[in-house]
């Protein structure tokens, strides 16, 4: 590549628009929020920039910390489940007949093209008390009771299943939020895993089998270490948006499943406390930076095998 000064015009025409975009619509607003986070609310719309760190100190009260911790827990749980669901799915696509691969990948990506709100409400329709999961369970419940009655053992059925069918409470709790986060973020996990596994030379797997390892040991000893950069990418790409989720906990969660984004939104809207909201936003960003730094460290350690993510 020649130096930029040799083809000044080319570099200017290619470089200036994105730079302008980045500065005007990303860095400047971000800087504003950062400045707000050191301000004080003086009225309904007024903010005095006093360079106080009160907003950050306020964030370290137990209630907010609890929500941060809860957000972390929900995001980590969702990421781990995504990994355990996504790895077999990605492996399945990699080893599917080539004429199926495109279709299967399309199946993974299709949800991206559907509005998140619609998908979430669809999930509610499935999970609610009078939803499809409960309908199905109720149907099985009824059939089992009929079967037991047929053999004159209705008493046993009642003892096992209770007096009558109890609908499961699947919505408005932490489990619903985790399920929703997994549902929304699974493609983020599957795609980088797929990319990493697809690149993997099959002769490594065959060599492992040839040397006496079974499929599980090959997966653990060869596939996972060699796909590690992809796995870490998948974890990061899933974890970051999961941590900042707003819609999912808001719609699927119970009163105590609020995640940090819900609290931030509340500061900017109902509480009208922009400085505090800004401070919380930046705290969330620092956590994200931490995750990225962790990835960089891991990549450096994994980089010695000559396979880059």
């Amino acid at each position: 590549m020649d130096s930029w000064y040799k083809f000044k015009r080319v570099f200017l025409s290619v470089g200036v628009p994105p730079t302008f975009w980045l500065v005007a619509f990303f860095l400047v607003p971000l800087a504003l929020i950062w400045v707000f986070s050191f301000g004080e609310k003086t009225g309904v719309v007024g903010i005095d920039i006093t360079w106080t760190i009160d907003n950050y100190i306020r964030a370290f009260n137990p209630d907010i910390l609890k929500i941060f911790a809860k957000s972390l827990w929900l995001a980590i749980a969702a990421t781990v489940i995504c990994l355990f669901v996504g790895l077999p799915v990605a492996l399945g696509i990699v080893y599917a007949p080539s004429k199926w691969k495109g279709l299967l990948l399309l199946g993974i990506m299709l949800p991206f093209w559907t509005n998140l709100l619609i998908r979430t409400y669809a999930l509610i329709a499935v999970l609610r008390t009078r939803g499809y999961v409960n309908f199905t369970l109720e149907w099985f419940d009824a059939k089992i009771r009929v079967l037991f009655d047929l053999f004159g053992m209705g008493g046993i059925a009642t003892a096992l299943l209770g007096e009558r069918f109890q609908a499961l409470e699947l919505l408005y709790n932490d489990n619903a939020v985790i399920l929703g986060l997994v549902y929304v973020h699974l493609p983020f996990m599957v795609l980088p895993l797929y990319a990493a596994l697809e690149r993997l030379d099959r002769s490594y797997l065959e060599a492992s089998l040839d040397l006496g390892a079974g499929h599980l040991r090959t997966l653990w000893n060869v596939v996972v270490p060699l796909a590690l950069p992809g796995i870490i990418s998948g974890i990061i790409i899933t974890f970051i948006p999961a941590l900042g989720s707003f819609l999912t906990p808001d719609l699927l969660g119970g009163p105590d499943s609020a995640m940090i984004a819900t609290i931030i939104e509340r500061q900017f809207k109902s509480a009208n406390d922009w400085p505090f909201g800004s401070a919380l936003s930046f705290l969330l960003m620092y956590i994200t930076f931490g995750a990225l730094a962790l990835r960089a460290v891991m990549a450096k350690r994994g980089g010695s095998d000559g396979l880059e993510g």
Partner: peptide, 20 residues
């Protein structure tokens, strides 16, 4: 008999020496 249970071993064209 699956490959991992056969009393034969193979040297692959690409060698397939585990890089990690």
């Amino acid at each position: 008999v699956p490959p991992n249970k056969r009393p034969v071993n193979m040297v692959f064209q690409s060698y397939a020496v585990f890089p990690h």
